[in-house]
Amino acid sequence: MNLKQKALLKSLWVFHMSTGSCNNCDIEIIDCLTPRHDIERFGMVLVGSIKHADVLLVTGSVTRKCIPRIKRIYEQMPKPGFVVAMGECSLSRGMYINSYNCPLPLDKVIPVDVYVPGCPPRPEAMIAGIVKLIEKIKATSEGKK
């Protein structure tokens, strides 16, 4: 495990991107920051720019207007970076599967590391998802060693 990976495990900085979600997942994400769940005690911060972030948190069924923007944001993310798909919409498009404006699920647009299902996922589920991501980073880095 090199220094970069070791640092990653301690504090993941998250950039949140809504790609046509109904606001529910977005609000539950902000809910994670507030006193009851308080995800900041694990060193996770919601940051304002993708260039500061380690994790790209995507919510919402990927709408047509958002597809080029998601790709661009993914390209701008400093690597190693991880993508977390949150909510049923970004996993499989959910009820928007027949919509004319939601052509692709998220993992056909950019590679996704962790999926958190739910409509919307509870804050506990989101924290569990991030813990799985940390375990994944640990496992891959130890595997490489």
Partner: peptide
């Protein structure tokens, strides 16, 4: 706007 358009009336 238009980033969130999902066509719910049609659905």
């Amino acid at each position: 706007i238009g980033y969130n358009h999902r066509g719910i009336e049609k659905i």
